[in-house]
Every structure is written in C-alpha cells, then in structure tokens.
Design a binder for these strands. Structure first.
Lengths: 233, 233
DNA sequence: CGGCATCCGGGAAGATACTG
DNA sequence: CAGTATCTTCCCGGATGCCG
C-alpha cells in the first residue's frame, strides 16, 4: 500500500520524464521535444504577463484537464522554463512563474501568431483569454499607423487590469494598475477583440453594453485602428 | 468486405479532418491547431529547400511512420500549406511542395530554433538532416562576424547539393548545383555540424575522412566561425 | 478550495506487414 | 516506390476522490 503508492508515483514521474524525443540535433526539433506537447505553449502564453495560480490557469485555458496541466507544469519546470513558488504565509498557495528564458518564448508566440493569422481557417470570433488579447497587441502593432502617438491605454478584463503603452513607435504592455491611463476599455476580451480586429464600431459595442470606454473616446477609436491583420494566404 | 472497406476508409478520412481544436481565437493557438501535431513542423522543415517525394521524407525523418507521414501530408495540403504534384510522365511519382504561405514557416523554425538552442538539454551531436543543417546556417548566421565577406560555399551531403551565399551581411541558401562555389564541403550533415557548431578542427575531421573540403581551405575555416550558438539559459 | 493522484474510454502515434 | 491495413502502446481528456 504505502510502498505500492511510492512505486506507482515513481513510475508516474518516470513516465513524465521519459519524453518521446525526435532524436534530432536540429534546435527547432529540440524545441518541439521541450514544448511540443499539447497545451504546453498555451500554458506559457498565459504566464506571459506574470505568475498565476493553478486554478487561474485552468480558468484561462478552458478545455485543459487538471492532470494534463499538472504534467505540463512539471515538465516546464523540469526544462527550466518556469518556476513554482510558494506565496508568502497568509496565502497558502503556489504560483507558477516563467524564468527569464521562459519569457523569451514570446518571440515564438509572435511569429506563430503572425503566420497563422494568414490562415483562411482562422476564426477570430472564438473565445479569447485576456493574456492572448494583450499579447496580440504587441504582436500585431503597426508602428507606421501609430506615428507620433504617445498614449497609455488601460484594460479591465475580469478582475485583471493591463496597461498598454504606446510611445516612440513601440508598443509594450504589462499587467498592472491603471494609474495615469488616458483611456480605459472595460469588458470581455472577445468584445475588445471585436472592436480591434473585427471592425465592430465602438459605439455599437457600448450600446450593447458589451464594452465600456472610460476617458478619451477619440483615442480609443484611434487605438482600435493600430492593429491590422495580415492578408490571407 | 468491399463496402466495409469503403466505410472504414471514410471513417479514417473523417478522423483526419476532425481536428482536436483548442477553440481559441488566439492566432498562436490556431497555429497549433494547424501544425501542432507531432511531426508536422518537421515535415515542413524538410520541404524548405524545395519539393520532395514521400520516400525522401521518410528517409530524412527517421522515426516517422508511413501512416503518420500520410496523415500529416494530407492535413498540410488541406490547410493550404503544401501541394501534392504529379511529376512529368517519365517519373510516375508524386512530390510534395510547400505553398508560398507554407514557405513562410521558415520564420517559425528560426525563432523556435534560436529559443531552443539556449536550452541546457540541447544535444547538438544527435543525427541531423541536410535540410536542418543548411537551414541552421540561415538561422544562426552572425552578420557582424561576416563583415566584408562575399563568398559562395557549396555543400555535398548524400546526393544533394546546396549553395550558401554570403554577401552584404546576408546569408541565403538554396538546393542547387555548385557552379562557381569558392569552396565545397562534402560529408554527412553531422560532420559539418561538428565543424561549425561543435568546434571540431577541420583538419581532424578531414584526417578522419568524416569530411572533405575542396577549394579555398582558409575560406572554409572562416566559414565555420560565422555561426555562434547563443549562450545557455 | 487548491493541488494533485487514480481510473477509464477514446483516439493518436508507432511498428510491422502487406499491396498495387 | 508509395502508400494502406492492422495491431499495440501510449497520450489525452473527463470524472472522481484524497488530502493538506
């Protein structure tokens, strides 16, 4: 019983470690050995704006099952892409946080996204997490269209807030308080995506109460035009 | 029997089309829906320098089984990333060729490779296909180190030849005849990789007959130093 | 409640053999 | 040579339950 339990656990651990490898020196193949399993890259995507708890990840990745999430987190920790941390005493919980090298996966997400956005099969009306949406701004930002713009755009999505800064033809974003935002979008990620990528007029979304815009409304309108999708292949 | 066979085939086809989707508007998630299955990206990698036949792909992807290769080729054609073409009459064979959009996956391979090359678990001594090696030159090329260099480097690997052109701080490559090459490397991909990435002296590799260098030997030496690996994370 | 471990059903991947 | 058929193995996803 006790012994059996331990043995079983050993085996389970081993089966996690025993990765079906491509046995290929190509670094891209190695990348697939590391993060090619189902959900792995999306788990990293959800952590791009900072640490999250197990149940946050489950909520933001509808469809992933608890055991698969456990396996992916173990594997990502094992390869050095994330670290599991205990939160300070009051909260007896854990968070998962990308390592500096783990954060560099952002470049992969960007290139993959720009490639797949040209797919005729891509359906941008599907559900979308807050992290995906904010990340897509960094990926699809068009510096030419933002010429001369210097602004701080806030987002309130669920109980998270993000601040997107546009200055000097750059666009960066962080999960943080909205102090000093020139305008704030509040609503579900899909509603904001409808405005930015779906061409839905802000007015209509606001009328339908799918979205609220607090602050400089003209700036909000301009913001929605800064992220052109690539043409279909 | 006949009917049963057809029914089974129908079901098999259906199971190929029925993709387990992430149901996520994020374009990176869509990319995984398209090419996230095992082997898919490596099949595309092998086609980066032009069309290949089914059995070429099998030979260059040791470990892939025939039925999986069939499924991946069907799926890649279905999404518009490659086209299956009949060769002109004498050869009663088929080839698989990436579409223009399919070729754009090169950017994904590059970014993935640069990320994974920083993994402490990466083992560059594993087997390597010719396409992987030549592609890695485009990925890892350091323009700073090639300053002022203008050269045509040939490679003879198995029965394929590649020409790598370095000029104006750029590095491009194609599978083509070696006309006008300043120097030619001949040998297995792993031997060339040992020289470029493993720091093995050309002299030693040549003495071991793992590699032959025809032409400007000093240029060959310089070439091997143009592709620094990123530091480990 | 958060973080797993366990069991189960279905389906994808792998190996082998076989066919046109 | 270019796949197809079949069998086995293993991964994924869902449900349940344990335990701090």
């Amino acid at each position: 019983m006790r012994l059996e339990k331990i043995t079983k656990k050993r085996l389970a651990e081993k089966s996690i470690l025993s990765v079906r490898s491509y046995d290929d020196a190509c670094a891209a193949a190695h990348a697939l050995d590391l993060i090619g399993e189902r959900w792995a890259l999306l788990v990293m995507r959800e952590l791009m704006f900072g640490p999250k708890r197990f149940s946050d990840l489950r909520a933001d990745l509808p469809g992933i099952s608890a055991n698969v999430l456990t396996q992916r987190l173990e594997r990502l920790e094992e390869i050095g892409a994330l670290k599991r941390r205990k939160l300070p005493p009051p909260a007896a919980s854990h968070v998962y946080e990308l390592t500096p090298w783990g954060y560099e996966i952002e470049s992969v997400l960007g290139v993959l996204g720009r490639w797949a956005a040209r797919s005729p099969l891509h359906d941008p009306t599907l559900p979308l997490s807050a992290a995906s949406l904010i990340l897509s701004f960094k990926t699809m930002f068009d510096a030419r269209r933002a010429k001369g713009l210097n602004a701080r755009i806030g987002f309130r999505i669920g109980d998270e807030t993000f601040l997107v800064r546009i200055h000097g033809g750059k666009c960066d974003a962080a999960r943080q308080a909205l102090d000093g935002a020139d305008v704030v979008f509040a609503g579900k990620a899909t509603a904001i995506a409808a405005a930015v990528y779906g061409g839905a007029p802000l007015k209509a979304l606001i009328a339908k109460k799918a979205l609220a815009v607090e602050g400089d409304r003209r700036l909000a309108e301009r913001f929605t035009g800064l992220f052109p999708l690539p043409e279909k292949a």
